[in-house]
Design a protein around this nucleic acid. Sequence first.
DNA 1: CGTGGAATTGACCTGTCTCAAGAATCGTGG
DNA 2: CCACGATTCTTGAGACAGGTCAATTCCACG
Lengths: 236, 236
Amino acid sequence: MVKSVTLREAWSGEADCLNCSLRTSVLFAGLAESDFEQIHDPIDQFTLKPGTSLYRTGDAADHMFTVRTGVLKLVQYLPDGSQRIVRIARTTDVLGLEAMLEGGTYQHDAIALQPTEVCRFPARLVRDLGCNNPDLHRELISRWQRALNEADAWLTELSTGSARQRIARLLLRLVRDRESSACQLFSREDMGAMLGITTETASRTIAEFKRQSLLVETDPNRFLLDIPNLKRIAEG
Amino acid sequence: MVKSVTLREAWSGEADCLNCSLRTSVLFAGLAESDFEQIHDPIDQFTLKPGTSLYRTGDAADHMFTVRTGVLKLVQYLPDGSQRIVRIARTTDVLGLEAMLEGGTYQHDAIALQPTEVCRFPARLVRDLGCNNPDLHRELISRWQRALNEADAWLTELSTGSARQRIARLLLRLVRDRESSACQLFSREDMGAMLGITTETASRTIAEFKRQSLLVETDPNRFLLDIPNLKRIAEG
DNA sequence: CGTGGAATTGACCTGTCTCAAGAATCGTGG
DNA sequence: CCACGATTCTTGAGACAGGTCAATTCCACG
């Protein structure tokens, strides 16, 4: 289940690393061939089954991850046991940025929603290189800013307005920057946890959208979106 | 209204710079005296009246700010014109981290809620020094992580549960890490925008808390909190 | 087939929104 | 210093969205 590749192989940019967001970044670009010999921390490659967690809140954060394929949810829990999904990670997203702080801990549970492949690399690697390599440094900053923008967007877009609006905005967000309007939905329970509504309300609203043909089911649990009309609802 | 101080004065650590969070950080610590001569970007010091904006969404982000005294809200707007407050900045908080990305723009309106003093410094300064000074680098990362944690907390704590719970959590958050349980409240409208509820609901709930002596008004608009009972409500 | 979990749907109830009308507070200018 | 207009806060009454609880259907899987 855990396939290990050496840094040298990562550097070669072969195969699966094509989609690795850090490959196109300059993480390895500044290193001489000889440097690779000195780094013997392996880069591991995981495959997570749906429902499996990549890490848990409070775990010592010493690794960072890149999502190759699949989707993960980042979850936080309230004292009363209810949960809130604060972000979603998809292809090329980086997880565990908090590992940049020495001695830090993860701030969420990261749980796969689909079969998901991730690359794992030691945070120390990035910490050591980050300061000396301006391009990597910039890339890190940019990632952080993106995470922050996402967090803010979840507040303003996905936690504001009626349930109809929130679900419409969530759907639109799922197909943004995609060629097609096709997407597969999350479980009703997860939708609820993302939007701050109950699973029943999520279910009812999705059902209503289907009746109104705002959502058309092509394959089981795969849908085409009526983007213009969903936009109308989202901004209502 | 705009008082200008030179970097050398900042370095001397006199007067108002005592509370400056970047003073205790290593931003200037790594610089030799002689370096200061070469930096002629002034550090400006502003005083904002309540309701005044420090910057607006979309403005070119070329400066960062440290809050000396007072409070600011970070606001985002929805297409329908409604607003959501996504964060609050108080003493020693840094604003405008997005200026670290070259060519970036501010992601919020930053608006003073009280008479507020801020320091303004060019982002280029931090960009240039950040990479070479490991301590500053670490401090920046830490700030970013803190902002992200705040954003997540606003989702899980302040946008989840009943209005009673949200308001209780907001109140508790206002006095956290404070010696006393005294605090002054925001306008009902701002509370609503922070919690995703209407001003009427905010007002009603605050009034109810007063009746139950969970809030005791000492001076006009200054309150003492019944922390244990508020906690009970917050977690209820 | 039978079983367990998710999704759907219904009926009812309650919290919050909406609209609207007073009360209080603040800033301003006389 | 007071009076006035403008906000903001408070409070009420009614409507409605969404929550709650429960029953049913659907579906994947052994």
